[in-house]
Design a binder for these strands. Structure first.
Lengths: 150, 150
DNA sequence: TCAATTGGTTTAATAATGAAACCATAATTC
DNA sequence: GAATTATGGTTTCATTATTAAACCAATTGA
């Protein structure tokens, strides 16, 4: 395989996002981080990912500013991995995936984990809305492309 | 590589969703489908994906009910690929990725494509909200896990 | 102090991907 | 309507990515 084409310079923001977190593991790591995991072994155990790959993915996520690492104890070499502000901005992505999964990938009676508002215990929702506040679907939108320079 | 662990039986809806569309290409194909592309060659040209991989991805997306194929012309063998209802439910995922990309992966002056409401030309937004309608961030939520059977 | 756990790195085998060649069918041109 | 070109793939092969397992140094626990 020749190195995969980078989407780093694509004009489409979704494509650039996928360039950063579009691989098999990154969003699962981010999900676990939202879930409060911080240590190498916690991610490894939770995901069943090979350790060398986890190492490499953590490095990438740190390099792209989504995670940050800090010594787990004073002067120690072991690290804790936490979401940065940028990383926390992936919250809607995870919630969107969750909502799709809930709707289409579980049998009617099959139990799944739920995302609740801490204060009320009520489920949270996510919708694409117009400026007016009205929900909009894909058919009510258009993409405005960036004009190609000559 | 031993076959990668399937997340098909995971209790987390996000994980199941990633099991279906979490590879390098699927969401890019879906994005292009939202953008109106329907033909093999259009996807191939737009993405620069190898043809055999595109073939395989289209098959997977059809198998999982996200795309459907129909003959492009009466009785012909060439296919058109379109999003199903299930596929259109990935809209918020794409928009969430876009919003993250817009916010973090472009320089201040760098142009990017925009997603606009067709009727008004205004940008669309997406937010995670509580039942009350109030926006909620990751710190205001909890995951309710599925109890493990004995 | 000794044993076990944590947090990795290295190595070797296997799977996934990409590029290119190839081919049948469909659409276009002459 | 014959020849040409474009489309929609499939096959093959070389390369890269991922995995599991072995290994190891530094912490932590007993």
């Amino acid at each position: 395989m020749v190195a995969r084409k980078s989407l780093e310079q694509d004009h489409c923001p979704s494509a650039r996002a996928l360039d950063v977190i579009g691989d098999w593991w990154s969003l699962l790591i981010v999900r676990d981080a939202f879930d409060g995991l911080t240590r190498f072994s916690e991610f490894q155990k939770s995901l069943g990912i090979a350790k060398n790959i986890l190492t490499e993915r953590l490095r990438r996520l740190i390099a792209s500013g989504i995670l940050e690492s800090a010594p787990a104890s004073e002067g120690g070499t072991r690290m804790q991995y936490r979401l940065t502000g940028k990383g926390k901005d992936l919250f809607p992505v995870i919630v969107a995936l969750r909502q799709f999964g809930e709707r289409h990938l579980f049998l009617p009676e099959e139990p799944h984990s739920r995302l609740l508002e801490r204060a009320t215990g009520q489920p949270v929702r996510l919708e694409v809305r117009a400026q007016s506040g009205e929900p909009v679907g894909p058919d009510e939108t258009v993409i405005l492309k960036v004009p190609e320079p000559e």
